[in-house]
Computed example of a mutant assay.
Amino acid sequence: MSQLSIQHLSKAFGHTAILRDINLEVEQGSFLTLLGPSGCGKTTLLRIIAGLEQADQGRIQAGERAFVDCAAGVELPVQQRRLGFVFQDYGLWPHMSVADNVAFPLQMARVRRHDIAVRVREVLTAVRLQQHADKLPEKLSGGQKQRVSIARALAAKPGLILFDEPLSNLDANLREELGQEIRLLSKQLGLTCINVTHDRREAQILSDQIALMKDGLCHQLGAPEQLFRAPVDLWAARFLDAGNILPAATVMGEPQGTAQQVLVPRGAFRLAEDAPLQAAVISSLYIEDRYEVTASLDGHLVKVFTHQLLQQGQPIRLAVDHQQVLSYTAD
Rank of each mutant, 00 (worst) to 15 (best):
I210A: 09
S97Y: 06
Q188G: 09
L140A: 13
Q260D: 03
H219L: 06
I210P: 11
V78Y: 09
L217Y: 12
D100M: 05
G41C: 10
A172I: 10
R47T: 10
R59Q: 15
H307M: 11
L19A: 10
F239C: 08
D241F: 00
S10F: 13
G313C: 03
A72I: 01
Q308S: 11
P255V: 06
A268S: 12
V102W: 05
L285G: 01
L19M: 10
L4P: 05
A55K: 06
D289I: 01
I22W: 04
Q130V: 07
V196D: 09
E176W: 02
L19R: 06
A330F: 03
Q7A: 07
A99R: 02
L246T: 05
D164W: 05
G29R: 10
Q312K: 02
N195T: 15
V98M: 11
R121I: 00
P224L: 12
G143M: 13
L76W: 00
Q144V: 08
M1S: 15
D171A: 03
S5H: 02
L154F: 02
R59M: 14
A99I: 02
T329V: 15
E181D: 14
R47H: 12
L167P: 08
L4V: 14
V232D: 04
D298L: 00
I287Q: 11
A242P: 09
G190K: 12
L174R: 00
D289S: 08
K11L: 13
A17G: 00
A103M: 04
Q278I: 11
C40T: 12
E165H: 02
E27C: 00
L206I: 08
D241I: 00
V320F: 02
F13E: 02
K139Y: 06
R147Q: 13
A272C: 03
L34I: 07
T125Q: 15
R317W: 07
R201Q: 12
K11I: 03
A203N: 13
R290F: 04
D134L: 04
A117T: 07
H300M: 04
G159L: 00
P77R: 11
L174Y: 01
L35K: 09
L92N: 05
Q308W: 00
F239T: 03
